[in-house]
């Protein structure tokens, strides 16, 4: 290869790869892997990228692990100049199988022919957790709005366009008849709520802001029942997010009960 070409070839910088994978979710935790600290490191050699992933337990379900590894690989390949991406799942009961499958382009079903889960189940699974993430954030928004003194009728008649947010300040804004209500600490939640709702196809332009998982508006007089269901969804998801991120800190940083958990501030209610 002519030396000149090698020198002028665009080198891949780590921050480009970090930026490209910044939004890859742990689907079960509904939180970006990078923010969780699960992406251990990125190594770049010329145009080849190696990404190292660590999870909270040796047993984290392989179907979810496969989704994370393949999403990371897919996003990293979009970085200009990258010629190949290898993702390495470390310290996991099926780490080698999953890494090899993704790195050689095998689907989950091809890698695990004996698993009950099929490739289409896997996409269904991803949607199930998107739905949970949508409902959990709806729970947060609704409770805060109720606490601000809004009536059930006012909530039921808000449309999608009434919600906006300032992500940098982490503030959500809701337009009310003749006023705008600001909700501190809910900016990111508002964005994630709308993104998930639109991906699921339940939040539509000009449609109601608060709908159930099928996109149906909340029937009049049933808000309390609706909220109870939402809370149990949120508790389940919180079990995943809180327990798994705390276990990760215990597994890799030897955090104790006293240091691994921080209930303050994680629940904006």
């Amino acid at each position: 290869m002519p030396i000149q070409e090698a020198v002028s070839a665009p080198l891949v910088r780590p921050e480009q790869v970090w930026a490209a994978i910044a939004d890859v979710l742990d689907p079960e935790l509904d939180t970006p892997l990078v923010r969780l600290g699960f992406v251990d490191r990125i190594e770049i050699s010329g145009t080849k990228v190696d990404i190292f992933l660590k999870l909270p337990t040796f047993w984290c379900a392989p179907n979810f692990a496969y989704l994370m590894v393949s999403d990371l690989a897919e996003r990293a390949r979009t970085v200009p100049g990258v010629s190949s991406v290898q993702v390495h799942l470390l310290d996991h009961c099926e780490g080698e199988t999953i890494s090899e499958a993704v790195n050689s382009g095998l689907s989950f079903a091809e890698a695990f022919p004996n698993e009950v889960t099929t490739d289409s189940n896997l996409q269904e699974l991803r949607r199930t957790f998107l739905r949970k993430g949508f409902l959990m954030r709806q729970d947060l928004l609704l409770r805060r709005l109720l606490r601000a003194g809004l009536s059930e009728d006012v909530l039921r008649t808000r449309c999608l366009e009434d919600l906006s947010w300032d992500e940098a300040a982490d503030v959500a804004c809701v337009c009310l008849p003749g006023a705008t209500l600001q909700l501190p600490t809910l900016g990111r939640s508002a964005r994630a709520y709308v993104e998930r709702g639109r991906t699921l196809g339940v939040l539509r332009v000009g449609g109601p802001l608060f709908v159930d998982e099928q996109g149906e508006p909340i029937p009049a007089g049933e808000l309390q029942d609706f909220l109870r269901r939402l809370r149990s969804v949120r508790l389940s998801l919180l079990f995943n997010t809180a327990m798994c991120s705390a276990l990760f800190r215990t597994r890799y940083q030897h955090a104790s009960a006293e240091t691994a958990h921080n209930e303050e501030g994680e629940n904006p209610l």
Partner: peptide
């Protein structure tokens, strides 16, 4: 095998992740 090791290590992480320090 490694799964036996992985099993008890995982239990142990649950143990020390939720127990008060004096009960670890």
């Amino acid at each position: 095998n490694q799964y036996g090791r992985g099993w008890i290590d995982c239990f142990y992480d649950y143990h020390r992740n939720l127990s008060p320090a004096e009960y670890v």
